[in-house]
Each structure stands twice: as structure tokens, then as C-alpha cells.
Design a protein around this nucleic acid. Structure first.
Lengths: 192, 192
DNA sequence: GTCTATAGCAGGATAGAC
DNA sequence: GTCTATCCTGCTATAGAC
């Protein structure tokens, strides 16, 4: 039995992990199937027995990356990390530089509208998940929706713009401003 | 005299205008030099007597689009249009849909970090211009820098994320939240 | 300055052996 | 399921005629 039943799912996961890392950092057009497969220790020919095409992989990778990220945040919260610290970690130079698995919502935001329906709808679902997370983050009562939306825009937008800029001083100021305002918006009884 | 002295600059301007429209809406990889030249009524061969390569054109197009946009805003302000109306126009579904010449800062934000130094530094200069505009917008005294940064992130991020999303209801809520918070941040005596 | 023609390459997708 | 080999397309960039 050369290929045990667990082999295929495991391989698929390896491909997804490789794709999530590469796509998030380099965008859809910035990554070839060759690269994804090489990173996963395979060759291009093997790809099409796991995914229909590049676009499907992209959508799946975004979902995968986000699940990993949500899992991480849940663990942090369980371990007693404060909201302030989580926001600080998100709006942080290390995140912008792409260490580990960065946030696909931020890194790919203007990549998405050029992709197919399937990709946009995946992105939208992930964004909804983040929004719901912010609404209930570390509190029993639900936060105001619009305040959470504005906070999410400051987080995602802050990382996206900070990544584009070429001037460390401005990026640093930008992160500081986004941290301050988003935290204020996430105060439990905040209303717009 | 088959080519008058005004011919080349005019042609260059036609190419830039075509490039600004196409690149802003479709990103760097989403546009070919063929398309840009065809839109300008020329063929690909003529391109390289105006620009060194595709990357240079991209940087020049971002600068061109932004100058057009700043010109537009100055005219609006001179005509007595309020800041509220300007923000409303920016954070508006029509802008997201790409009518006329959309804002390159928003539409290309996550495209930029994958390009060369030249492009990133152009983007950074344009962003600095917007920031300075916000600091002095319709007031004699200078607004607080961090408040203006946060407002700019809500504007750029709001358009970028709104464009990615596939759900009109959420996009509409998102634009509303960004309008409300950014306007609040631009109140003349606002401090963080 | 603009054209047509072409060189050269990268990458998506498929075929067929193992 | 994975491999190698191949087809095919699209694109940047250049050459050379007008």
C-alpha cells in the first residue's frame, strides 16, 4: 500500500500552507504554481489532482490562512492576552514586514477585486468573520457594529498602507494613529 | 515638418492618461503595454520612445492620476464645496465602482509593495501630499497630524476594502462608518 | 515617432509513464 | 499521486523599415 489514506489530505494541507504563505506575501500574480509546489516539496504536475486551477487554490489559501489566524487569536485570548496587545501585534512593524503568516485581508485587499467571484466571496466571508470577532471580542455585550467596522478598516487599512509606504517614520506614525483610534472605537460602550 | 514640437509631449500625455485609467482600475499585472497603447491610439512599438519600461510608466501614471485628482479637489474647494461633501464623494459607491479616475492610493494599495523602489517612493510622495492636504483642508490652523493620518486610513482603507467586498449591504455600512469617523477626526480642534 | 515583425521567456494547463 | 515532457498563450522588449 504505497499511498495510505492519510497521504492525500496531508499533501493537500502542505500545498495549502505553502500557498497561503506565498500568496499572502506576493499576491496572486506574484506567485506561480511551480513555486507553491516546490515549497511544498512537489512538482507542478501533481497540482491538478488537488485543485481545479490556480484561482481555486487562491481562494482556498485565503480561507486557510484566515482560519490559522483566527485560531491563533482565540488561543491568545484564552491565555489572557488583552485586546490592546492583540491590536498592538496586528498594527506592528513585524506584521507589515510579513513575518510568519500575515493577514490576507490586509495584504491582498486590492488584489481581490481583480479576481473571480469565488475569490471575492471567500474574502467577504473572512471579513465578516473578523467583524463578528471584533463585535464580541473579550466582552459579553455586543459592540456597536459601525464602530467595529471603522476599527477593522483602521487595522486592515493601516497594515495595507503601511506596507506600501517607503518611509519608516511615516509608517510608524501611521501605526500609532491606527492603534489609538481603533482602540478607542473598541471601548465597550462606544457609539458613533 | 511631419512632427511638430508639440507632438511628442502630447502623445506622452495621451499615453499617461490611458495608463492612469487602466492601471488604477486593473493593477500593474492586470494591464499590458499593448492595452495602454491601444487605448491611446498607438501600437506597442511606439511605447519605448516615451518610457524606459513598464515599471517607469506605472510610477509616472500614479503620479499623473494623483495630480489630476488633487487639481479636481482644489477646484471643488475653490467652488465652495464643503469637506463633508468631498469625503462623501470619496467614500461613495460610485468611486468604488471606478467611475472616471479613481484614487490610485486606494485602488493600488496592496499592489505597491510588490513593485520596485521607484514605484513605492512615488506612492509615498503622493500619500504625503494627501496627508498635507488633509492637515490644511479648509482651515487656517493646522490639524493634528495623527488625526489626519487616521482619517486618511479610513478613506483609503474604506475604498480599498469596500472594493474587495462582494456584499452591497456591508460595503454600504462600511462607507457610512468610515465617513462618520473620518469626519469626526477632521473636526478642526480634534486631538487623539 | 510610429509602424510591423519577431525574439525570448514565463507560466497555466494537459498527457502519459510509473 | 506524483513525475517528466509538452503544448500553448500572453507578454516584455528589441530590430529595422518608413
Amino acid at each position: 500500500m504505497p499511498y495510505p489514506a492519510t497521504h492525500k489530505p496531508q499533501t493537500r494541507e502542505r500545498i495549502l500552507n505553502s500557498a497561503a504563505q506565498l500568496f499572502t506575501k506576493n499576491g496572486y500574480e506574484g506567485v506561480s504554481i511551480d513555486q507553491v509546489m516546490a515549497e511544498a516539496g512537489l512538482t507542478r504536475g501533481a497540482f491538478y489532482s488537488h485543485f481545479a486551477d490556480k484561482s481555486s487554490l487562491y481562494a482556498a489559501a485565503i480561507q486557510y490562512a484566515s482560519k490559522e489566524r483566527f485560531r491563533f487569536y482565540r488561543a491568545e485570548l484564552t491565555a489572557g492576552v488583552s485586546i490592546e496587545r492583540l491590536i498592538e501585534g496586528y498594527l506592528h512593524p513585524d506584521h507589515i514586514k510579513g513575518r510568519d503568516m500575515p493577514c490576507a485581508l490586509a495584504f491582498l485587499v486590492s488584489d481581490i477585486s481583480q479576481r473571480e467571484q469565488q475569490v471575492r466571496s471567500t474574502y467577504t466571508e473572512v471579513y465578516k468573520g473578523l467583524l463578528q470577532g471584533l463585535e464580541h471580542l473579550g466582552t459579553d455585550e455586543k459592540r456597536e457594529r459601525l464602530a467595529c467596522i471603522a476599527a477593522s478598516v483602521l487595522m486592515i487599512g493601516g497594515v495595507a498602507i503601511g506596507r506600501a509606504l517607503d518611509d519608516e517614520q511615516i509608517t510608524s506614525d501611521l501605526l500609532e494613529a491606527c492603534r489609538a483610534v481603533s482602540l478607542q472605537l473598541l471601548e465597550p460602550d462606544q457609539t458613533l
